[in-house]
Design a protein around this nucleic acid. Structure first.
Length: 686
DNA sequence: CTGATTGACGTTTTT
DNA sequence: CGTCAATCAG
């Protein structure tokens, strides 16, 4: 055991009891240490299923599970029907909280089958709440409203306290909405992502017997990416590990990039205050990147004030110094990088999966997508717009959610007239007003015969059909041996959904693509059904909400296995690539203008974001700067990111703006020349 | 009730 | 330049 580990790593792996803080720098083999440690615990007699490991993403959890199975799992596949050997419990905070809450939801006044609302459900609810308050979207947008509410929730501010903290007009409106929002989702028997953590915390606080029971399931708790834990997550950790104190947290304060979500670097900076007997292990050797890259990384992060002092020590000598490339604009940037990648690929030394293009905002990759597609280079856009965000997929899932839980108002409102069944805006409005006045959900109002008879004739029939549809599905589900995928297939048939899609999308190819998505949902459900231990509609929906991004068609999966990665710095955390391109290194983007506005702390977080990007690179790092960027149809000049100057040791350069200006002048000249040329061409033609 | 057109407006990251 | 909400004519 512990072969190939350095002394620090060995200490982290072999000290098995008591609290421990592992300060793991980027590329220090952190993941390896965590998995070795779990394996070691099992070898020393801990039952595997009494170990809880909390990861940041579902993807990380999946990878960790696979690694551990490889290390300690049976050499041969156990015969069919044999009981599976105990395995460690590995998952995100959110998925673990759902497990716990499913067992005790009643205690908190939620139905056993409470729904989980994702971002899009939250936005719909927010929109509805703001509409009821007659707030103009110009004054407070749903997304902004949600960010206020989320901040309050994470800070432990209840909806009756928010008004005291509100300063601006928008915040006061948000405070009024907060109450309604919370009541609305509670009425639907739903929790949003924040609620999952807060409710768990509340559950442990108010019902000690529950806390004792849940904590008693484990003898060891490990937390990865500890720098990104927020207040409630920390409380949950303490509740679970407080008794046995076998708590191992692993993280890097320099990679704390979720402050906006309530993560507190404070937790990792002061761990030893709360756990005075904690052993602290520092992993500073970096096995990932070349010396040339690490020099830049160290120089950059040195500009941050609030941090544990540590320096990444390179294990790989030499290397190519990072390059800084300037392009005329963001289209040229995409074209230039695509070209470079294509050339490297043609030499057959590297594969598409060796490349990553990192950016700050989700709007940036659009240009890259078109260029990569043109060059026929396979790419995968990580994160945004997953399969389950497609309209038709989402609609179908809403049907399933209503079948599972008819009180789920957000889902109902989404598909109440999709495909169209005569329940127009007026009728919906009437239903909603009545529902609110009765403190009931719309689904319950459906059964209010007197009220429904007052609605237009087509609406009445639509409601009846909807009720019938749901009842039929529920009926099928109660039958023994009912296949979930089969029920869904019949639902699609009953809805005549495929034909409806053709009507909704007149273009044949688009309609076909959407119909294919429907097939894929059915496949995904079938796949879930085949894999899950005890499959249920509810379980499938939970998985989709919490880990939706890992689903997808087999074709997509196959294609994405070896593709250039396009992702944000946030989703790049924990990953590594031989070639990394950091794109759009401009003031206003990285650091983002929003974080520049107010305080200094936010710039430090942006710097950490940049640091995360730099430390993803194994062999070659390229920093890119478009000198102009299209904004609202007009090209606008950019300024080079201050981080570029910091990384290159020019932070104090008083002329840094001028030097960029001169570069811009050159580009402007060449642009003018190009414009003249094309003008000449077109005049020749005519 | 539905489908088409017009107008305003746009500052980030995600479990 | 795109997106989405509000508005209007069938």
């Amino acid at each position: 055991m512990s072969h190939g580990l350095n002394p620090e790593q060995q200490e982290a792996v072999q000290t098995l009891t008591g609290p421990m803080l592992v300060l793991a720098g980027a590329g220090s083999g952190k993941t390896r240490v965590v998995t070795f440690r779990i394996a070691n615990l099992i070898r020393h007699g801990t039952r595997a299923d009494r170990i809880l490991a909390v990861t940041f993403t579902n993807k990380a959890a999946k990878e960790m599970r696979e690694r551990i199975t490889k290390m300690i799992g049976p050499k041969r596949r156990p015969p069919r029907g044999a009981t599976a050997p105990p395995a460690p419990v590995i998952g995100t905070f959110h998925s673990n909280c759902v497990q716990i809450l499913r067992r005790h939801a009643r205690k908190l006044g939620y139905p056993e089958r409470f729904a989980i609302y994702d971002r899009s459900d939250q936005e719909s609810t927010a929109r509805e709440v703001l509409r009821q308050l007659r707030v103009h979207t110009g004054m407070l947008k749903p997304a902004e409203f949600l960010s206020h509410v989320s901040r309050w929730k994470n800070a432990g501010v209840r909806f009756d306290q928010a008004h005291e903290l509100a300063r601006t007009d928008a915040e006061h409106v948000a405070a009024s909405g907060y109450r309604r929002y919370q009541q609305a989702i509670k009425l639907c028997g739903a929790m949003d992502f924040d609620d999952l953590l807060l409710s768990t915390e509340q559950l442990f606080r108010e019902f000690d017997e529950v806390r004792v029971a849940e904590a008693g399931r484990f003898d060891h708790v490990l937390v990865d990416e500890y720098q990104d834990t927020n207040q409630s997550q920390y409380a949950i950790i303490c509740a679970l590990a407080g008794t046995h104190r076998n708590l191992c947290v692993v993280g890097d304060d320099d990679q704390s990039i979720y402050g906006w979500r309530g993560a507190e670097v404070r937790h990792i900076l002061s761990f030893s205050k709360d756990w005075p007997d904690a052993k602290i292990v520092r992993l500073e050797a970096n096995y990932r990147s070349t010396t040339a890259i690490l020099e830049v990384a160290n120089r950059l992060i040195g500009f941050n004030k609030t941090r544990h002092d540590k320096v990444l020590k390179p294990a790989r000598a030499g290397g190519t110094p990072p390059r800084i490339l300037q392009f005329k604009n963001e289209v040229e940037e995409a074209r230039g990088i695509t070209d470079e990648i294509r050339k490297v690929l043609e030499r057959r030394q590297h594969e598409p999966r060796d490349f990553a293009i990192l950016f700050r905002t989700n709007e940036q990759p659009r240009v890259f997508e078109t260029e990569l597609r043109k060059a026929q280079i396979p790419y995968s856009l990580v994160g945004s717009q997953s399969f389950f965000d497609r309209k038709e997929v989402r609609d179908l899932l809403c049907y399933l959610r209503i079948v599972d839980n008819p009180l789920d108002e957000v889902s109902l409102l989404r598909i109440i007239n999709v495909p169209q069944r005569g329940i127009g805006a007026k009728s919906v409005e009437a239903l909603l007003t009545h529902a609110v006045s009765q403190a009931k959900t719309v689904w319950e109002i459906f059964s209010d015969k007197v009220f429904v008879r007052g609605l237009p004739e087509p609406a009445q029939r639509g409601i009846e059909r909807l009720q019938l549809l749901s009842a039929r599905c529920q009926n099928k589900l109660t039958q023994p041996e009912a296949a979930l995928a089969g029920v869904l297939r019949e639902l699609v048939y009953d809805l005549d959904y495929m034909a409806a899609l053709e009507r909704m999308y007149p273009q044949a190819d688009e309609a076909q693509a959407r119909q294919a998505s429907v097939e894929e949902v059915i496949n995904a459900l079938a796949e879930y059904e085949a894999d899950a231990k005890s499959p249920s509609l509810a379980g499938f929906l939970d998985d989709v909400t919490l880990a939706g991004k890992e689903f997808g068609s087999p074709k997509d999966k196959e294609q994405q296995r070896n593709a250039v990665s396009l992702m944000t710095y946030h989703s790049a955390k924990g990953l590594e690539f031989p070639f990394v391109y950091m794109v759009g290194m401009e003031e206003g983007i990285l650091p983002h203008r929003r974080s520049l506005a107010e305080n200094y702390d936010d710039v430090e977080e942006e710097r950490r974001l940049c640091y995360v990007g730099v430390t993803r690179a194994q062999d070659e790092l390229t920093l890119c700067l478009p000198l102009q960027r299209m904004k609202w149809g007009r090209p606008q000049d950019t300024f080079a990111s201050r981080f570029l100057y910091e990384m290159t040791g020019q932070a104090d350069n008083p002329n840094r703006r001028r030097s960029i200006d001169s570069a811009r002048k050159q580009v402007a000249a060449s642009t003018r020349a190009a414009a003249k040329k094309s003008a000449a061409k077109s005049s020749k033609k005519s």
